[in-house]
């Protein structure tokens, strides 16, 4: 009796997600996406593909951190899958830097569009095409209508979309499935070596439809995201305290 009830509830949850435009969780990415403990925050512990993810960042450094984090996710999405399209207003991305995240930069197509309207159009056009693994767009002023259109486009094609929002003007109310904020953190070197170590980020999942928001400290090591050991966190905060 009890299990039957649970089954019904699980079924209803799935239905709600589907009505909200999210695909039923099929784990095609099983083992491919190196997100580790972050996966538990998503519904059914599966990274939502075929959805729009929103990233907000306040500074150029945070923008670079977000770029790195997304590239890490792309490495999983692009494995044995189609190419990726990256749409930005200025040609500031540096392709050789992407290869550190297990992504072949020659499989990313860089599109430059100056006006925000054009970026929206380009992103919608690209998202409608199934077969691409992901589309990334840099759109500071993403409005609700635009985000809704993008979301409708991916619901048909199943392509995953990422919207980077540097210095967002209206950071509330979009139709995106999730909202993230990635901030750079003091880098980590095992055994306290001097110098700059592997990139570390403070990753906050501010909003996720059907999941649990959370915050993590992640490092990109050996081709996957790995939680930082607690000791590192302490030293990092101690440095911050000293400065403040």
């Amino acid at each position: 009796m009890l299990t039957e009830r649970e089954n019904i509830i699980a079924q209803l949850r799935q239905d709600i997600l589907r009505m909200q435009g999210q695909r039923p969780a099929t784990d095609r990415l099983a083992g491919k996406l190196p997100l580790g403990s972050v996966l538990d925050a998503f519904p059914h512990s599966v990274f939502p593909t075929g959805a729009i993810h929103e990233y907000i960042s306040a500074t150029p450094a945070a923008m670079a951190a977000t770029t790195g984090f997304i590239t890490g996710i792309l490495s999983g999405l692009m494995r044995n899958s189609g190419p990726c399209i990256w749409i930005s207003p200025d040609p500031v991305l540096f392709p050789p830097g992407f290869s550190a995240f297990d992504v072949k930069p020659d499989r990313i197509l860089f599109v430059q569009a100056r006006k925000e309207r054009d970026i929206c159009w380009a992103m919608e056009t690209c998202l409608q095409m199934d077969g691409l693994s992901a589309v990334v767009g840099e759109l500071p002023g993403l409005g609700f209508t635009a985000s809704r259109r993008l979301q409708l486009a991916v619901e048909k094609s199943g392509v995953t979309g990422f919207v980077l929002r540097p210095k967002p003007r209206n950071p509330h109310h979009t139709a995106c499935v999730s909202r993230w904020q990635v901030k750079p953190m003091t880098s980590y070197y095992p055994d306290d070596f001097p110098g700059v170590g592997v990139p570390c980020w403070q990753v906050e999942l501010l909003k996720i439809r059907g999941g649990r928001p959370g915050a993590w400290r992640l490092a990109w090591m050996n081709g996957s995201f790995q939680p930082l050991p607690d000791t590192h966190a302490v030293t990092a905060s101690s440095i911050l305290r000293k400065i403040g």
Partner: peptide, 18 residues
């Protein structure tokens, strides 16, 4: 197709000012 490998021996930034 790329004629050579992408360099990975040295860390490189992901965003570069023109």
């Amino acid at each position: 197709q790329p004629a050579t490998e992408w360099q990975e021996d040295r860390p490189r930034p992901v965003r570069l000012l023109r």
